[in-house]
């Protein structure tokens, strides 16, 4: 049999299997949809959390206020040392004059404050931009004892909180998704088992006339893959529509804008489809294999 004909045979077998138990088919497609929606929600949440963290971090600098008596050589050495540390993007020296300049700009319009700014005792500082904000804590612990440093300032709370949320969501989300995928595979396996059972006579004859296990398996595995694909397509559709709506109606756009990165959204869709197909194939395969082993 040519491979095209063989495909035709498998497809028609699959189609008639699908017709056979419509209700169970709907149930298993539905479970795939639900779990892939959860996976999608998780991935979207993660995406937004990541972009929020990046956003916040890019605005976050670690600011080292220097002691007035620190020498130029000392400051220079410190700057070079920090530049060599992990997670540091760049280090800028902000002199007393420059700090005063900035403050003036920030307070422009409030003319009567100009005089105070001129006389205020502003310290010079080093401003550190981070590539990786999760390294902030280790960075500060390393430089804490340096004699030239007076004070260290950074948005430590928000970054650590966000990173912690992300960690928790990742672990909890992954656990939930694994459980959901197992449940889904189980539902699919049971649906396929029904089809297999309904076709046991045919399977029996196929075995007797010398059909290989693979030949017998394929229509059932394709049925499972079909369930997975249909369910995850539905999930992608619902997730896409839902997320588009959410982005449009998001009340916090100015504080935490939702990520609408097409590349990332495409990756998420592909992940959902692949997840559905894998779960479907896995569920049906485990079901058929068990059955064939029992029949031998």
């Amino acid at each position: 049999m040519s491979s095209r004909m063989r495909l035709g045979y498998f497809l028609s077998e699959t189609a008639s299997n699908l017709r056979y138990n419509g209700l169970m088919t709907l149930a298993s497609i539905g479970t795939v949809t639900v779990s892939m929606l959860v996976l999608g929600a998780f991935l979207l949440f993660n995406l937004n959390l990541k972009s929020t963290i990046n956003e916040v971090s890019s605005k976050t600098r670690v600011c080292l206020y220097l002691k007035a008596e620190a020498s130029v050589a000392e400051v220079d050495a410190l700057k070079r040392m920090i530049e060599g540390l992990d997670g540091v993007y760049k280090v800028d020296y902000v002199s007393v004059d420059k700090a005063r300049e900035r403050l003036k700009q920030d307070m422009s319009g409030q003319a009567d404050l100009g005089r105070i700014v001129d006389t205020a005792p502003l310290p010079a500082s080093l401003e550190i931009e981070m590539v990786d904000t999760s390294k902030v804590a280790s960075l500060t612990s390393v430089i804490k004892g340096q004699p030239a440093i007076d004070e260290i300032h950074y948005g430590e709370d928000i970054i650590t909180t966000l990173n912690m949320i992300r960690r928790i969501v990742q672990i909890g989300g992954l656990a939930a998704i694994i459980i959901l995928c197992l449940v889904t595979a189980f539902v699919i396996a049971n649906t396929i088992r029904l089809t297999v059972f309904a076709r046991r006579k045919e399977i029996r004859i196929m075995q007797l006339v010398g059909a290989t296990d693979w030949f017998i398996n394929w229509p059932f595995i394709m049925e499972g893959i079909f369930h997975g694909l249909a369910g995850s397509l539905l999930a992608v559709g619902i997730a896409a529509a839902g997320y588009a709506w959410l982005v449009k109606n998001w009340p916090l756009t100015f504080i935490f804008p939702l990520a609408y990165n097409e590349q990332a959204l495409l990756h998420i869709s592909i992940a959902l489809l692949a997840g559905g197909v894998l779960v479907g194939a896995f569920g049906s395969f485990s079901s058929v294999r068990k059955f064939l082993k029992a029949l031998a």
Partner: peptide, 10 residues
């Protein structure tokens, strides 16, 4: 059927 399922051509 007996021929189909062992991969014999149409």
């Amino acid at each position: 059927f007996a021929l189909h399922v062992i991969g014999v051509g149409r």
